[in-house]
């Protein structure tokens, strides 16, 4: 469904161009959950932004192809790209505190994609928004509809963000460290929610994280990125059990283990 072939991203805002992503390849099937892991600055967020079509067209050179539904999203016009954004490809950001417009009501923001991509009436949009809010397990969706973002907690906002992302039933949901800013219990709930959305709606999820434990429990396949390159990829079990690359081994051994802690090591 989605094919990323030899994606290279170069920054041109300084005198010497700087490449942040080299030869990124990705194939995403319908209903799959693929994880991208790597340390900060490894290029995982950049690749995701490129797929979402959010990289600015100035100061940046991109080579390669991002093919979705037979259309190259890298070279197509902004108008064509906009038809896919929000409708087929959606994204949930890391920071739920700043991802919502502070002066607009929750209901309005969740329904925004519908307003842009469909010709539903306000009445129908309201109905669908409330249904989706209930679907992401928010209590009292009718009450939340009329609230402002500052009235909600971080976990609730992240649910709202997910609701806004899935309301158009997208084929791909890109989650860029959606749980990093949340505490552990809320994290687990959000992950469960993402998994359920994937199961019930068949939405493919591209999950970006530096939390290996989370990736291991959620994803079927995983890509390991280091310094802008994919150093290893494969099914989650394979990569975690039998890492081939030195970097991956080091990354995995860095996961704190219960037994070790008990021994006082």
């Amino acid at each position: 469904m989605l094919d990323v072939i030899d994606l290279n991203i170069e920054f041109h805002d300084h005198i010497t161009p700087e490449t942040v992503v080299y030869d990124f390849d990705l194939h995403l099937e319908k209903g799959e959950i693929v994880g991208i892991v790597g340390e900060s600055g490894s290029g995982k967020s950049m690749s995701a932004l490129a797929i979402a079509g959010l990289l600015s067209r100035k100061h940046m050179k991109k080579r390669g192809q991002i093919i979705f539904d037979g259309v190259d999203l890298l070279t197509c016009s902004r108008g064509v790209l906009r038809k896919y954004q929000g409708n087929d490809i959606c994204m949930v950001f890391q920071e739920p505190m700043t991802s919502l417009n502070p002066v607009k009501r929750i209901g309005w923001q969740v329904g925004e994609s519908l307003r842009i991509h469909t010709s539903l009436t306000e009445e129908q949009i309201r109905e669908k928004v409330i249904k989706t809010l209930a679907d992401v397990e928010l209590d009292d969706p009718e009450g939340i509809y009329d609230k402002y973002p500052h009235e909600l907690s971080g976990g609730m906002r992240q649910r709202v963000m997910i609701a806004a992302a899935i309301i158009c039933e997208p084929k791909i949901l890109i989650a860029d460290e959606p749980t990093t800013a949340l505490d552990v219990t809320v994290q687990a709930q959000i992950l469960k929610l993402l998994k359920r959305i994937n199961k019930t709606r068949g939405t493919a999820i591209l999950f970006i994280s530096h939390d290996l434990g989370v990736v291991r429990s959620l994803c079927e396949r995983v890509l390991v990125m280091y310094r802008g390159r994919i150093v290893e990829s494969g099914s989650t079990g394979e990569v975690f059990e039998h890492p081939r690359e030195e970097y991956t081994k080091r990354l995995i051994s860095a996961i704190p283990k219960m037994e070790k802690l008990k021994d006082g090591q």
């Binding site: 979402a52 079509g53 959010l54 906009r82 038809k83 896919y84 954004q85 929000g86 409708n87 490809i89 959606c90 994204m91 950001f93 920071e95 700043t98 991802s99 919502l100 417009n101 502070p102 925004e112 994609s113 842009i116 991509h117 963000m161 806004a164």
Partner: peptide, 14 residues
């Protein structure tokens, strides 16, 4: 460049 503008752009807003 705020996040909520990014997410609006991502929703396909003109």
């Amino acid at each position: 460049n705020l996040d909520y503008v990014m997410s609006a752009r991502l929703m396909g807003a003109s």
